[in-house]
Design a protein around this nucleic acid. Structure first.
Lengths: 187, 187
DNA sequence: GTCGTGATGACAGTTGCTGACATCAGTTCG
DNA sequence: CGAACTGATGTCAGCAACTGTCATCACGAC
């Protein structure tokens, strides 16, 4: 056995969600989390840039999948279809972790500071998606607009799914939200 | 003459933008701002909830205009047209203050913490716009999606306008961005 | 076995922000 | 006319979010 228990980072992330759920984000100090995870506060801040970031550890992986999906979509597919498939595919990654996603979403919904961070992550994902579309030859401003449309469909579908209002799973719900959006904007 | 110079709030907001521009947001302390504005740090935090909020003093007014524009749009106008006119109208409010808007945008673009706050303000505006659409009888999820589409057009148009890439003014550029978006999503 | 190396602990320091109480010009009201 | 009231500010103490720096020590390479 090593000098310390392994996976301090994972423990910190799990404990943070626990405590944010139990007491709320503002009522939880970084020291509380570190203590319950069996490390010091300093170690918490070595693993996570701040108290918010601990809830967003998976977002880089999600973005990678999204960008890969856009890059590897069939040539000639219209940008909006590419975006729809890519965001639905990103949603599929969350499909297995609905319970976790719901707890996490509840904490974020209750905390403006965490909403800010989530919006920044989504905006970063949109920027990455736009860049991936440009790499496929999609012009500006269409690339940026298509990416933002994808995020709108993603978040709308996610909310329905978390609220238990989508019978067919997250990926299908995201595609459904995109279809609704296209209906709303149709000339 | 009163006991103190009048308009401490306005002075703080102006000085904050100055200092954020000169030294950057993180390199500016609340005390720096207060001192140059001739008040104490405590007074800064009485007027603004935090160091970021001082750059977003106008957003409530913008949101009010947006909601009013949606509420007073001609009956029977399709939601997407309502949204387009409302966000273009909100843009028209900024038309006169391009220089200020540009300085402010530069600081925000350089500072992730400020981008977060801006995204939260935009999301709040979108939520308010969605609610105003529902009050007109627009169903869910169309109301929320139309509002998000409006924000996408607004931000895209704003970026072009700030970058000097829009010959016809902000309102027209926002309408143009919305037209581009509709073209991208068109079946 | 010696020597990195990487993750952690210990500790001091700055800054953002909050609560509690005092001050005092201008206003209102008896 | 003066007393009570109000609103904006100042003063001060304090917590919590981070950050920089140095020490520690299991583990693996050599």
């Amino acid at each position: 056995m090593g000098r310390w228990e392994p996976d301090a980072r994972g423990r910190l992330a799990r404990v943070a969600l626990e405590l944010y759920t139990e007491r709320g984000f503002e009522q939880t100090t970084a020291e509380d989390i570190a203590e319950r995870a069996g490390v010091t506060e300093r170690t918490f801040f070595r693993h996570f840039a701040d108290k918010r970031e601990v809830l967003f550890d998976g977002s880089a992986a999600l973005q990678t999948h999204l960008v890969d999906a856009i890059a590897s979509a069939p040539a000639g597919l219209p940008p909006i279809e590419v975006v729809g498939r890519a965001f639905a595919g990103a949603g599929a990654l969350l499909e297995e972790r609905r319970d976790f996603a719901r707890r996490r979403a509840a904490v974020i919904a209750a905390t403006p500071a965490l909403q800010e961070r989530e919006l920044l992550k989504l905006a970063t994902m949109a920027a990455a998606a736009a860049e991936a579309l440009r790499a496929r030859g999609v012009a500006d401003p269409a690339a940026g607009l298509a990416a933002q449309v994808g995020v709108a469909a993603f978040t709308t579908g996610f909310e329905l799914w978390v609220a238990d209002a989508s019978p067919d799973g997250l990926a299908a719900t995201i595609e459904g939200a995109l279809a609704d959006l296209r209906a709303v904007t149709a000339p």
